[in-house]
Amino acid sequence: MSCWETIADYSLRSIGIGARLLPKEDFTLCQQFTLIGSGMLWNIYFGVLALISGFFFATALAVGKAAKNPLFRKPAEWFIFLFRGSPLFIQFFFAYFLFLSLKQVAPIFAPFTAAWLGALVVLFFNTAAYSGEIFYGALLSIPKGDTEAADAYGLSGWHRFRRVVFPTMMRLAWPAYTNEAIFLFHATTLVYFTGFPAWKQKGDALYYASYFADKTFNPFIPYPILAGYFIILTLIIVSIFGMINRRLNRHLPTERRSKIKFRPNIIR
């Protein structure tokens, strides 16, 4: 079987298109590259959707945590504490079994026991909590002069937030938010190692990598392939976020623009 046939069979295998059976023996490099790459589709799916939806929720959480009214502040504080203080691994397990029990009560929860929705919800909450804390930190460090200037212009309420507070908050939070995005994509590899089942062996990149490692008992090929894919993904994220960062900082003199370091401090 040539490499092109393998690519035709397996490049979309992770979403159920192509050959039904996974390769069983005599694994070629081409098969490993194709299948692990096909699994990356799930990592990108989880990462992109959770990041985009989490962004809006995180903004709401940050504003809520900074609010004076305890009716808004307390829930936001507790939500952030709950999701930042516990391991994502346990959150996945708990959510999966929670959805399983809810499914018995109301069948509407049936899709939540599948990874595509259930794991996405957990990742959405998780990244919203982490980014919410980042945005909250940025919100507190907005220069006082900016908000005073907004007041002087007679801006208030929504206009003040939309035109002054929000853009500055984004600008200050962006380098840390880039780290969070990278971490989120790394965290998507956990999904199929918790309760969530990979139906018909449709899994993510790490699922296929560990499949090959288990079958061949040789970790030295599939895991470096996976690592290569993730390094490429990380570089893409850094460059996209770098472009947005340049746009956010475009009004500032060059030396005051905060640069995203090429090797960001990747600790969540």
Partner: peptide, 22 residues
């Protein structure tokens, strides 16, 4: 420093346990 941080840690866990043993 760069490689370990650029790759998901869980992949490293799965890798090193077999790799060290072997």
């Amino acid at each position: 420093i760069a490689v370990v941080r650029g790759v998901p840690d869980i992949a490293f866990f799965l890798f090193f346990v077999i790799a060290l043993d072997q």
